[in-house]
Design a protein around this nucleic acid. Sequence first.
DNA 1: GGTACGCTGTGGTCTGACCACAGTGGCTGC
DNA 2: GCAGCCACTGTGGTCAGACCACAGCGTACC
Lengths: 240, 240
Amino acid sequence: MSETRAWRTVLEHIESQLIEGRLRPGDRLPGERALSADLGVGRSSVREALRVLEVLGLIRTQAGSGPNAGAIIIATPSGGMSALMRLQVAASGFPVADIVRTRLLLESAVAGELAERGSLDGGAHSPELAAADRLLDAMDSPALEPAEFLALDAEFHLALAEASGNQVITATMAGLRSGIEGYALEGLARIDDWPTTSARLRGEHRGVVDAIRAGDAAAARTRIHDHISGYYAETFIDHH
Amino acid sequence: MSETRAWRTVLEHIESQLIEGRLRPGDRLPGERALSADLGVGRSSVREALRVLEVLGLIRTQAGSGPNAGAIIIATPSGGMSALMRLQVAASGFPVADIVRTRLLLESAVAGELAERGSLDGGAHSPELAAADRLLDAMDSPALEPAEFLALDAEFHLALAEASGNQVITATMAGLRSGIEGYALEGLARIDDWPTTSARLRGEHRGVVDAIRAGDAAAARTRIHDHISGYYAETFIDHH
DNA sequence: GGTACGCTGTGGTCTGACCACAGTGGCTGC
DNA sequence: GCAGCCACTGTGGTCAGACCACAGCGTACC
């Protein structure tokens, strides 16, 4: 009980305020000095707790004065998830193979669900896929560096997750992606014939979206699965 | 780049050390004072970074002297995932419905995979399911408080994830569980006939494990899906 | 009326100090 | 010679105070 470290009490205090609804996204937290005085802890302890909230994607801090200054609740989980995954991968907490397998699982499910939903509401031009379409076109640009292509590729997969409307899945996929980003870039060097490879990847992307639009859930699942596992099979060969 | 904040410097330094393999799980970080001097930042900034690493489940800190003291790399992602999910749910970053849907997705996949794997290696007594079996037996105890039952229930589901051997999924499921734990406990109050309900839940659990042992992937998927969605349908009725 | 200046409060950082704690090793008593 | 005790040392944990840069606001000045 009294063993609780000071920054924990700060964290728990803020968490309980959130649960009670006394703090909501957009709200501004009390200043560090005020929190310090209210909770009877040092300002440095308050800062340690705030730092955690910041990395977890819960708050944004801004120095200065005025309504935009201070610590403001934002609740954007993707950033926190990414930091967590990246560091855990770096510390061997998460094997890369497990990340890829999880990604396979989530993306197949997302693609399948999108296809089913799309076929229900008539298909055609779901606005959710607009972002994906835009990225698809951007990736067709011939003057693209491989690393730039990869960034767009990542955005494309993320756009699919966002289209699903499930924020947990979206944030998780953003995290997974971030965790293996280093390996993906590294794997680029193993690709001999980039023009051919990128053309194939572009075709696979279109295939996935087409299957979704056609409402063919099975094909959507299979295609995205093969797309992802194919890329990793090609680039991650015997990586320690 | 933007004006780097001191604690970011520390975080990036440690992350790069991890990536380069100069730091591995089990290793001990330099002392706070040493890091502070090496990186040219204040000790408070070092502490803010360490606090982040601690919450993310990357290090464990221990005061005192000797080999067990200091900050030691542990890489246990479940804790960090749980903290992230809990806080994001509290801050409305993650809708509960999205968490449940994600859980449905992951657990169905895990159960199906376990069933397929089990049928391959002959089924019978996979050692991976031993923990699940133990929890199943523990849940049969009639003198169990609902909250205790719920805790065992959570462990059971986690044991299935662990049996899959995918650490990312295990950590994610631990986090998801933690995120909705408050709601699950709250939902307990809505249950009128606990003996009947718990008996049904126990039966469903056994049904899932039986299907896995029988190598019936389709049944395993369906049963765990119905089990989870059934429980939430019962307890989460019109929760804002 | 408009502009420039200073005031004020915010986070960001550093420093130095003190505490509690856990090993370590020497000292003491037998 | 040995066992047990205790001060020492280094660690994280915490606090208080100081200073800085910055953003907004109001006022005084042009």
